[in-house]
């Protein structure tokens, strides 16, 4: 029973050190040096109103907006309080049907040819803010028509909102859907 005292005291001390001092120190330094990131990388619209985080996607279904990836979060897509994926198995009939429905919805807007997988397959977090440049390009005619914009000018806007690979070689080029749509709304 000699070990009882260290067992209890170590729990108390490690709780104070690892559960109190450590996160407090990290929070202090992080907010001093990276205040924007530490608080969620929030973004504002043209009227300087906080409208979300540049890291967290939002649901779009209107023709005048670019659409993001499908999201499997509960209640509605891109619900930040319910992050998660569909967890559908690759042979699940319900999943195959859901993808077929999404393909059809895109075909109905006039899309022909192959469909990039990211636009019809749900993300892991359900909050993925990005789509591929191919998926954005495929939506340009629809958005241009809904907003009466020149497709070429819209294409340039998409290009401006395409993030390259980090440090030039990490990850994939990608388009932040919320940022692009906010820029579209700010045009007027």
């Amino acid at each position: 029973m000699k070990e009882i005292r260290p067992a209890i005291m170590m729990l108390v001390l490690f709780t104070v050190i690892c559960g109190g001092i450590y996160p407090a120190v990290v929070t202090g330094i992080a907010n001093a040096f990276f205040p924007k990131q530490a608080k969620g990388s929030m973004v504002a619209d043209a009227g300087n109103r906080q409208v979300g985080s540049s890291l967290i996607g939002q649901p779009f279904s209107d023709n005048k907006y670019f659409w993001g990836r499908p999201s499997a979060t509960t209640d509605f897509g891109y619900n930040p309080m319910a992050s998660g994926g569909s967890n559908s198995g690759p042979t699940n009939p319900d999943f195959i049907k859901a993808v077929a429905d999404r393909v059809k919805a895109l075909r109905d807007t006039g899309v022909t040819g192959g469909i990039p997988a990211d636009l019809v397959e749900a993300s892991a977090s359900g909050l993925d803010p990005h789509i591929t440049p191919e998926s954005a390009a495929l939506q340009i005619p629809r958005v241009a028509k809904a907003r009466s914009l020149d497709p070429a000018a819209l294409g340039r806007m998409v290009a401006e909102h395409t993030e390259g690979r980090q440090l030039g070689f990490l990850g994939e080029p990608r388009v932040n859907v919320l940022a692009l749509n906010l820029a579209l709304d700010a045009l007027k």
């Binding site: 967890n87 690759p90 195959i96 397959e121 993300s123 994939e172």
Partner: peptide, 20 residues
């Protein structure tokens, strides 16, 4: 099963786009 529907590319169901 999805390629038959016209979907192209890798299996991206349950994956995030920012990671390769």
């Amino acid at each position: 099963l999805l390629a038959k529907l016209g979907v192209q590319g890798a299996n991206l169901e349950g994956k995030e786009l920012r990671f390769s």
